[in-house]
Write a protein that binds this DNA or RNA. Structure first.
Lengths: 222, 222
DNA sequence: TCTATCATCGAACGCTTGTTCGAAACCTGT
DNA sequence: ACAGGTTTCGAACAAGCGTTCGATGATAGA
């Protein structure tokens, strides 16, 4: 969907999307008013509605466009790679690279996932499911190939997404390691964690005393 | 702070907090009106304001109370354990156990972190920083003890938080593995990932070609 | 230059929101 | 049965919200 030189209309729409993303990322979708966006884009309230039919559609446009780009880039990147481990590494690299370079949009994608509903929600979720399934398939293949045992694939997949998508909560490009380092660290932690170090496996069960598990039932449980 | 039999007032306050948490978790803080809470608790609008001074204070009370409990439980659990690896395992176990048993509150804690401001924000963040520092200290100690190299401690720490805190986005107690299994999986992935499997380390650098890193710069970057 | 389409705007509407206030109702110890 | 504090409530307010509408300006092909 993305690409091509773009008309005047497309350019301005993208400008609106980018500006809105920045405000959504900072204040959150629901705390951002169309008037905030109007002020930032220097357009009138009604002028904005020429580019989207509702505030929710604006959020959808941001999310859908953002997600499409990540997935298209990813597909291109792994197209002619066979080794599933390498495919996964490239996926992680691409995801984090895009995340860091488009922090606002990705934050909006990650954090406002439940702020859309109806048909909008369905469309974004369809894309999301494709992406999740891609990772699950990769992990399944890797697990078979390398004889990984005792790991729930679904837990592993979402652990990886957790590691990657959480970064908008803490990552500071000026203080922290750069994108390459970030990819390297996360890939190393997840991948050698998933494949498993046998020396760790040995001591894993020592801690499994069930007694702790019921300790932390809190005041909330009345 | 938690504990003790509690007065009538305290009980009702907790009931208000718990009910509000459930609605916040489902619809989000900003999309929830005091009228929603009024309906769910069967109290009047003004009746609610006897228990909190503002909507934001209500959110603060939920977050602060929730966080205090997690940390207190954690402290008790690791109080008389020396081995830093075991301390970390217990921390993970406690965190996930509490998360799964109090999904609503923990979702509100994780997802609405930026919905409070001012003094409220400062107070919650002070607690948060204590908790983060605890994990960072543990990881530092483990890294020294086991001679872990080439891992950024900050990245590792927040990767772990990402894995743990992301679960509200996908975990379904009825479909997925139970809490014990969840802890086991996440502990295994993170810990053996952090400690590192040397056989993985060998092939790590193969993928590091920089050429990919600039590929995914998207349309957003105009 | 005329015209049709594209792009923008000011002003307003109807609705929901968080919060307040003074008065009632309830409870408890005397 | 009374008094005092605790708890609850109905009704209202002001402010902000997303959205619409008809009209205006800009642009470009005939």
């Amino acid at each position: 969907m993305p690409g091509e030189p773009q008309s005047k209309y497309d350019q301005k729409l993208l400008h609106v999307l980018k500006t809105s993303s920045a405000i959504f990322a900072e204040k959150g979708y629901h705390s951002t008013s169309i008037r905030d966006i109007s002020r930032a884009t220097r357009m009138s309230l009604s002028g904005l509605y020429y580019y989207f039919k509702s505030k929710e559609e604006l959020l959808f446009l941001i999310q859908y466009h953002c997600f499409s780009t990540v997935m298209d880039d990813c597909r291109k990147l792994i197209a002619d790679v066979d080794d599933p481990v390498r495919r996964l590494k490239l996926l992680i690299e691409n995801h984090l690279n895009y995340f860091v370079n488009n922090m606002d949009e990705m934050k909006v994608l990650s954090h406002e996932a439940n702020s859309i509903s109806g048909e909008f929600f369905r469309k974004v979720n369809a894309k999301k499911r494709q992406y999740v399934d891609l990772v699950i398939d990769l992990l399944t293949e890797i697990a078979r190939e390398r004889r990984v045992k005792d790991v729930d694939i679904r837990v592993a997949a979402f652990s990886l997404f957790g590691m990657m998508n959480w970064i908008y909560n803490w990552y500071n490009p000026r203080k922290d390691v750069d994108v390459a380092g970030l990819s390297q660290n996360i890939t190393r932690i997840f991948l050698s964690g998933f494949l498993g170090d046998k020396s760790i496996e040995a001591e894993r069960l020592e801690t499994g005393r069930e007694s702790h598990l019921d300790r932390a039932v809190s005041i909330w449980q009345q």
